[in-house]
Write a protein that binds this DNA or RNA. Structure first.
Lengths: 138, 138
DNA sequence: TTCAAAATTATAATCATTACAAATATAAAA
DNA sequence: TTTTATATTTGTAATGATTATAATTTTGAA
């Protein structure tokens, strides 16, 4: 279940991140674009609304959000860092042909490794690579 | 089961990658250091044996090996690309305190997502983050 | 041995990210 | 409301990993 905008605002307040104009817009953008945008996509799109926006602000804000565990970083491919509003129990599939990233449900908590008893695990990630149906059948 | 050096040489030949001195040394290094080395680690260590070694060669070679599916890239953290001799069915745990990366056995093939029927999957990755026991109890 | 193709090397270029300092905005106190 | 201190934003410069390029060297076949 996707968190509401109010939930996220609440998260910002709880975590003592001041809800500045830029931060709100970036958070809103991430919610409305759960397509794993890159920094450039976020920056280019938001610059239309906020002409004075600086790319530094996008980086700063994403770093704050990451520290607050509001977003996670996906680095399936090097030099292609993408950001994702955190929702639990989903994996990522990257199509090597068209580059699209798909979410899929997966019960990550089922993956417990006996070897890791004694380890404190606070983040589990699963990603697959391959070719998506659109590219396969055309 | 770890592939033997002969197996890997055989892989090179099959895949039409000429077994040059540098390539053999890099392959050997990766086998003897299954600790997910970075490019710098590989370069610095091998430079002692091969003083004329160039970092470009390390990059070129790793790219060839990746295309030949002999190694895989792990990018748990951005700006920290690591290389790993491919062995199936293991995940990676990265300790956020000391930075060490641990392998653990996991039956990745069990992770099938119904949503991905119709997708051609050829690479499955699992990585966890957290704190390792060494850092927890000190 | 000779020759053409491939690999290696050194250097320069690229590009995403980070660092920094000045300008601006914010919130609380007076 | 005005003042003041603090946090945020901005633009620019610096960093650093990776890639591109061209010259040199090595390799393997004829």
């Amino acid at each position: 279940m996707k968190p509401s905008f109010e939930d996220l605002m609440h998260e910002l307040v709880i975590r003592k991140i001041r809800p500045s104009h830029q931060r709100i817009k970036i958070l809103e953008y991430l919610m409305e674009h759960p397509c794993h945008p890159t920094v450039d996509q976020i920056f280019n799109d938001l610059q239309k609304e906020i002409p004075t926006l600086s790319k530094s602000t996008v980086y700063n804000t994403l770093t704050s959000f990451m520290e607050a565990q509001l977003v996670r970083v996906i680095t399936i491919e090097e030099n292609e860092t993408r950001y994702d509003i955190i929702t639990h129990n989903h994996g990522h599939f990257k199509c090597d042909s068209c580059g699209a990233i798909y979410d899929f449900k997966i019960n990550i908590d089922d993956f417990t490794a006996g070897e890791l008893s004694g380890f404190q695990i606070y983040d589990k990630n699963v990603y697959f690579k391959g070719i998506c149906p659109k590219c396969l059948y055309k």
